[in-house]
Design a protein around this nucleic acid. Structure first.
Lengths: 218, 218, 218, 218
DNA sequence: GATGAATGAGATTTCATTCAT
DNA sequence: AATGAATGAAATCTCATTCAT
């Protein structure tokens, strides 16, 4: 009965919440779950707890979500979507031929903002990641998400003039994705000034990218 | 009831195991716990399970560890110590005045090797991360660990000639620490060749460090 | 707290469904319940399930039945009625003075046929028995049913000439009822040929009845 | 998710109760379960209920039985064993060549006594049978049991001189098994005198068996 | 010191039934 | 009459921890 063999459960939201009332309830559940995660951590995220705090009955929770994990799932999906939308938003013809460093200078802060609206969200994100460790399904979701991000970044690289073989470009995109992750960690975990951080990461990225870009610098 | 204050339990090992027998028991418990974690996952890591597999009684476990969490704690501490030792091992007078890039070229692979000895260890590490999801104390341990690593790297930076103000050097050390993390993720998650990855990360590090290092390159 | 007094709930059908529409709804509920029982088993027989499948609201179900149990009750009553009707159908003046063995030779197969119309019904019957396991009231219904059958058989015995004291005749009727049960079990559980089974049971019945019947055989 | 597909669970007793203490606990649990079944019926047989009534903690129940069903299982197994032992006890060379009716006259009351020690046991038996309807595993147990009984009876028939083909003799054994069941039902459900009942069933059996037995009667 | 039986809080989930709309 | 969202009691089972022996 190792984790790998956990039988796949349905984790989709139960009712397609067309009606406003239903939608509100779903939101209330998710909001409360997010608050518990942020304030008390994953261990305290029990179904009873969510019900009590959101002023609903435990039965109501199960009217909207088939099981506890699906709540975590939904939170995670929404979280990732925010980030993905930002990146995908840049993947248009308008980016074609633009200067990479300019695009990066816009993209990085945008991603950063999408991920972290507030300090609270950083705790929330941590707890979500913990949830990922526990529920393999969440990891799958993240992998898909990561694939999309990296593919999009790869496409972006092409648009700004990186015309190398697909595989290397893909790896390069992954490298950049990682850098944005690191930047985020640095801003969260240390009191380093954003300017300093941005400068360093730009230099780091520049150190690699200068070999792949046309000579915009001159 | 924020997580930090939730459990103020004692998680240190119970008896300073001076006697050889005691020490052996502690090791047996930890070994068995590691095996269960690696072979069967965190879900199967129950105190009863550990007791049965290690041929001891459940009561004996509690003679040496105040609670289950402290076992995970100890495992995690030892794991981190391995990595830390590598870094700290470079923090000697012998490093004074050495070329940074040379040191980095030795340090990065060493860290990488310390973290992942084998495939088994990667499973073990995953399960430890799950443990972190459930026991906030483990997260604290990791933070302390990170602090030590970063401090040591900062000290290393000084030794190789980065004589800037302490805070900035500390941040710079953090930046380097993150880069080693990224490198690891890249090698695990993609099929990028190690050479390629090492090249990129060296270039990235170089992009930043060249501004802080004396001109060794010439 | 003996079982008999545990639930003194109303289990009768709620409204005397004079109106055609109401009657139709009652039938729809019962039909759907029977289908669920046959196709999916007692575990899936939930009020929500019945409501969804019959295209009605859960509230409507409770308009026509005071509780879930009363639905099972009604199904069971109808089922038993089928068998009872067969037996009662023989309890008319036309049977007066007929040869017992002739009557028995008609009655036994008729009962058998009434109980088991098809394979589906055997599943349905099984699931009803599960229901009996959970709802003691169903057992009471079966007892009443048995009483009626036995009384009717007793009356039949009188009609064919068994003019012994009432109590003994009642017991004799019970004996015959049991024999039909055994015959059924034998035909279901073994691959014994119906002819063989009928022969044996006729011989068994004959062994007892010959002492109570006028000498038709000669 | 019909009953048939219920995944087979372990239903064996958990600890081989070598120690006296353990054995006593197992007995206490089973005794209390039997009492609940007899006094309150299958619906009231919950794990919490058993724990409370037996003055043990719910955890203790699960120390000795892996799940609720296994308790019912054990009760059923023990019950059946009593009956089986009686029948099998007759299946020795000493029975060879004995008069069938004599053997039957000893066997039937013996079976009857083994099944029903008291009035209470009849209710207990009823509830066990209900349990059978709910838990398919119990049905399997009963089928095996029935097979053993019938095979043994078939062997007995051979010993007393019924030398017909195996299949028919097997069916005949089944017929006799059913008759003992009926007799039991009659004595439980009606106030018919045991003498009367035994007489009838002997006559019934005689009606069939006279065709298969050597002429002991003369 | 060692044992392991006993404990019981607590987690997830179901589903009959109610009642405001 | 009809609806179906809301309720919450109740059921099964786990497992960290204690403590009498």
């Amino acid at each position: 009965m190792s984790t790998e063999t956990t039988n796949m459960r349905t984790v989709a939201i139960r009712k397609s919440p067309r009606q406003k009332r239903s939608q509100e309830k779903v939101e209330r559940i998710l909001d409360e779950a997010r608050l518990i995660l942020t304030e008390q951590g994953l261990e305290q995220l029990t179904t009873n707890h969510i019900a009590r705090r959101s002023g609903m009955s435990i039965g109501s929770i199960y009217q909207y979500f088939p099981n506890k994990q699906s709540i975590l799932n939904e939170l995670y999906l929404r979280w990732l979507k925010g980030v993905r939308d930002v990146v995908v938003g840049f993947d248009t013809d308008e980016t074609n031929g633009r200067n990479f460093y300019e695009v990066a200078a816009e993209l990085l802060p945008a991603i950063f903002q999408a991920e972290l609206h507030s300090e609270l969200d950083s705790r929330f994100q941590d707890e979500l990641k913990k949830g990922m460790a526990l529920y393999p399904e969440l990891t799958e979701i993240e992998q898909e998400h990561g694939d999309i991000i990296v593919s999009t970044l790869s496409s972006l690289l092409y648009r700004v003039g990186v015309h190398i073989d697909d595989e290397t470009r893909h790896h390069l995109a992954y490298f950049l994705y990682m850098q944005s992750d690191c930047l985020e960690a640095m801003l969260i975990d240390t009191n380093c000034s954003p300017e300093q951080a941005f400068t360093w990461f730009n230099q780091a990225i520049h150190g690699v990218m200068q070999n792949y870009l046309p000579d915009h610098d001159e």
